[in-house]
Write a protein that binds this DNA or RNA. Structure first.
Lengths: 217, 217
DNA sequence: ATAAATTGTTAGACGACTCTAATATTTTAA
DNA sequence: TTAAAATATTAGAGTCGTCTAACAATTTAT
């Protein structure tokens, strides 16, 4: 096992490189809130440990070994989040920071037990998939709310989890994972969307918010 | 909050100085499994932070500030242990190492919720008292098994928690916190003790084991 | 296609924590 | 009461992870 810092680098590299397969030093520096030279020297260390592939002035890529480690941490993070919500009764908007700490707990017994208690769950409270103990992710169909036609009905399956304030916003609007919503109106000029919710209420979402909500039709 | 390392020093200083009010550098080095100079320099750092009072070649004492920090960590450790046993269903002999990690989690919400779920418990699974959120310890009457006269009956309230192997040993003998036992025979020549247990079985304990079992008469 | 802007790297230093080797103090026992 | 044993400290170095300042490569836009 690597250090706490190392685990955080690996996790961030995974998250930021998911789309394109690689990350740049500056993106990583921004995400981790450290300066460029810090990232540069850490990435070199990770490279000597064969956790990333890296050539100066080129992007950073996780090796298979690095990916495996990243998925193990993500698994722990997501299991912890679900545990905090389901077993401990905390709100989905307040568990992220605690899970950031619990994800570094080194105890297969602890996580095996959580997995068991939650009945081998596939998704965390934000709808993100939980990798299994081999790092395999059970994927789901994903469309962003902003891509739905007017009149269509869909179920919210996930949200992009970045800041607590975003989750607070959804809570305030009364939206939850699993809720069914119908697109009532899409405003072309600003991209905002009006939803019809199971609570019979109409909910107005800005484009910025809607694009971070994932649904299954 | 201090670093993880700092927290571990504070906790060990508290544990080792409980009896006499002070610890020596060498004892601390042994407990923490580091060399003497490491302890020496760390203790100096803790002294500049006003967490310990220290004069070269003299013992190390926690300041009020240090004690407060120690008790906060101990509270988290013991709450975590009880939580792992009661809520997560792990065995009392396997929770110590996990609690060693959970005790460093920085989240009042997390621990407040555990405290609530466990109904503000006063003792951990090993019978050790859990300090309240102000660091106050609810003390209990404590006598070691080896000080009981033959014929007396008492309830096991705690055990000295040092090594997993000791707890495994008690498990194997069928002894648990809360069990009532009667002293059947005390052997003078080797200090061993024969107990009568609620299970009607006779249990033989060596002096070494018996002195680490605490009872209430 | 070259200058400006952006992005990345190197050099060197610092704090936290550890170590080994050398030295000093305190305790114990002859 | 002094020599030996036990205990503690200092000096100096190494690793991890961070920083600032200076420089180098790459991209972009004129």
């Amino acid at each position: 096992m690597g250090s706490l810092t190392e685990e955080n680098y690996i996790k961030s590299i995974y998250a930021l490189s998911e789309a394109t397969g690689e990350v740049y030093v500056s993106e990583l520096a921004k995400k981790l809130e450290v300066k460029l030279p810090s990232v540069n020297s850490m990435v070199k260390r990770l490279a000597t440990k064969k956790l990333v592939a890296y050539a100066p002035y080129k992007g950073i890529k996780l090796t298979e070994k690095g990916k495996k480690e990243a998925l193990a941490i993500i698994r722990k993070h997501r299991l912890a989040e679900l545990f905090l919500v389901k077993v401990m009764g905390l709100g989905w908007e307040e568990v992220h920071d605690i899970a950031e700490q619990l994800e570094h707990v080194n105890s297969s017994r602890f996580y095996e037990r959580i997995d068991e208690l939650l009945n081998r769950p596939k998704f965390d409270p934000h709808g993100e998939p939980i990798p299994d103990s081999n790092g395999k992710i059970h994927n789901q169909q994903r469309t962003s709310l902003i891509h739905l036609e007017e009149g269509l009905t869909a179920t919210i399956t996930a949200v992009t989890e970045d800041e607590k304030s975003f989750l607070d916003h959804l809570n305030a609007k009364g939206l939850q994972i699993g809720d069914a919503v119908t697109i009532k109106k899409r405003e072309l000029f600003d991209g905002s969307i009006t939803l019809l919710h199971k609570s019979k209420k109409e909910i107005l979402l800005t484009h910025q918010v809607a694009e971070r909500i994932w649904v299954e039709v």
